[in-house]
Amino acid sequence: MGSKTEALAKQFEKVFDDLELVIGWETGFDSLHATPAFIRQPSALGRLIWNPFCSHNLSGYLTKTLNATAQEDAKKIGICVKGCDSRSVVALIQEKFISRERLYIAGIPCRGTVDLRRLMRLKPSLKDVNTVHIEGNELAVETARQTHRFPLQDVLLRKCLQCRYPNPVLYDELIGEPLTPRVTEGQAPPFVDKLEAHSLEQRRVFWERELDRCIRCYACRNACPLCVCQDNCILESRMPKWLSQRSGMSEKFFFHMIHAVHLAGRCTECGECERVCPMEIPVALMKEKLNQVVKELLDYEAGLNPETQPPLLTFDPSETGI
């Protein structure tokens, strides 16, 4: 293993002269946690890693921490993207928050990333991991003593189980060979369909139970690369005030609805909102549902082509049926 990790570092080394920095992943506070890395010196490229723990979508940093718009004399920003992450980059380009010319994109075909909490449930004692990789339909986690194997079904992030874009849709260099999607269109019902099979009342109960846990830390919003309003989010606006500080169901529900609706036709299903939720609320389901609606109504999927205009970002007075 490690070959993609090495290839990644090598690739960035080659082009580093043109780069201001590289955003990738490195090992975090323990061997199970990867963490975003901001690398400003070529000598530190060795810190970069790539493995199934690299679940973070790094594209949000292009607008929220850095400014990846075109600027005279500015060097490029190097960034590592998986298939899903690349769609966020495309969407941000479409919405003109970042510019393609400012980016050097290393695209990584991805077999899926791990939901650490699912993994911990299966093996709470897991630690001191040497390597982790995907072999066929299993996650192989090698510790000093033994190699543990887990069915991918049981340990991947929910978004990865329904992934149709394992290959980056936009890149300057592809690290590794393209993969066949785990799920193709029309195959395996997405989670939304499963939930929709239930009655309205059952779904209300489901969402009340899930959202009841929300602590309104706003991590789902802040982690979302397409939540671009940043410090000007209407949820925190005091004038006008849309949301009270109360922590009842209506506030929680309202917050998540606002978040979801603002992502209709924009969400690229990177699943960050759900991954970062400390309370394990499947918040991405709401956006997936909206994406289904957008697909049906407008035949559009966000973040696939930087040249196209997202339908909800344009206005055509002659449009009918909406």
Binding site: A37, F38, Y61, K64, R221
Partner: peptide, 9 residues
């Protein structure tokens, strides 16, 4: 702090 996403967790 570059990687912080400014959430309240």
């Amino acid at each position: 702090v570059s990687k912080c996403i400014s959430c309240g967790i």
